[in-house]
């Protein structure tokens, strides 16, 4: 993915298997969000494709969602002047099909579908713990609840893969822990989760696998131990070899501490093509493979 002269994401091959939580980390500006935008069709990748369950997805956001990939946004994008319930109902869009005519005629089918949508939406609000706020405007929710609502809205499209862009940004430790529980609960429903985070403790606790993105390229991918042990990750966060890549303090501390403990792990040398290191026995029937490739400048 290129923006003018800037190659934001280059040759990132990535596989997420069902029932898996995968973390995506990297310093600010590494291209994580851009990667998500490519996956969900908000950006059309300059080169490369996104495939989900074996079929290549067209770079159209609504088709991607329909296929089963839902997402949240780093800078919350709720429908601010809609109520909490309505936000989730909008999320149901792809799983319902009542058009204008049935809305005007209001037949029994329409009423049934509306009722079913509402029930499902309430279920989801219950799930994230916002049921009591159903009639509040989204913009009046506190920050943490807005993030939860975004997750509920994304879940409303019954996704097979959920993309979370910094779900704990701006949260206090308690809220972060609650979010952790929430992500586990989502995973337990059989939904694969790919999440971007800067909170290292959170990521390493949660993820079965972690991938590190630095300057648009995938540096390492593997289990928490492998990634924490990788010296290049530390370097990327501390900013030694890559100038101008501001490392997040906490991340650096954690990575440093971990690195100091562990021996130098078997670092991966190939950046462009990374086989996934997760247990290969994960059911492959539901998987999303993506590769966005760009040429070097």
């Amino acid at each position: 993915m290129r923006f003018g002269g800037l190659t934001a994401v280059r040759s990132v091959d990535f596989t997420v298997n069902s029932g898996e939580i995968v973390g995506l980390i990297g310093p600010n500006g590494a291209g994580k969000t851009t990667f998500f935008n490519c996956l969900t069709g908000l950006y059309v990748p300059t080169e490369g494709t996104v495939s989900y369950k074996g079929t290549v997805l067209p770079p159209k956001p609504h088709l991607v969602t329909k296929a089963g990939i839902a997402r949240t946004f780093q800078n919350i994008r709720l429908f601010a002047n809609m109520t909490v319930l309505e936000n989730v109902l909008v999320g149901r869009h792809t799983r319902t099909k009542e058009g204008l005519w049935s809305a005007l005629l209001r037949g029994p089918g329409f009423k049934k579908a509306e009722k079913a949508s509402e029930e499902r939406a309430m279920e989801l609000l219950e799930f994230v713990g916002l049921a009591h706020k159903r009639d509040h405007l989204a913009r009046n929710l506190p920050y943490g609840e807005q993030r939860k609502l975004e997750i509920a809205r994304a879940l409303a499209s019954d996704p097979g893969l959920l993309l979370l862009d910094e779900p704990t940004a701006g949260m206090n430790p308690q809220e972060t822990r609650a979010t952790e529980e929430l992500v586990f609960a989502i995973r337990d429903q059989g939904i694969a989760v790919l999440l971007i985070e800067h909170d290292m403790r959170f990521v390493f606790n949660l993820s079965d696998r972690v991938a590190v993105l630095v300057q648009g390229e995938k540096l390492v991918e593997g289990t928490a131990e492998v990634v924490q042990a990788d010296e290049r990750v530390v370097a990327a966060y501390l900013g030694e070899p890559f100038e101008g890549a501001p490392g997040e303090e906490e991340a650096a501390e954690v990575a440093e501490a971990e690195a100091a403990k562990a021996e130098t792990g078997p670092a991966k040398t190939s950046v462009t093509k990374t086989e996934d290191e997760a247990p290969a026995d994960a059911p492959a029937e539901e998987e999303s493979t993506t590769s966005t490739k760009g040429e070097a400048q």
């Binding site: 956001p61 609504h62 329909k66 429908f79 109902l89 909008v90 999320g91 149901r92």
Partner: peptide, 20 residues
């Protein structure tokens, strides 16, 4: 459903398309 999607588009078109 259609009315809600109109309002969603009005509120935030990007998010609306990302909701399918």
């Amino acid at each position: 459903r259609i009315g809600r999607s109109w309002i969603a588009i009005r509120e935030d078109e990007t998010a609306a398309t990302a909701m399918g």
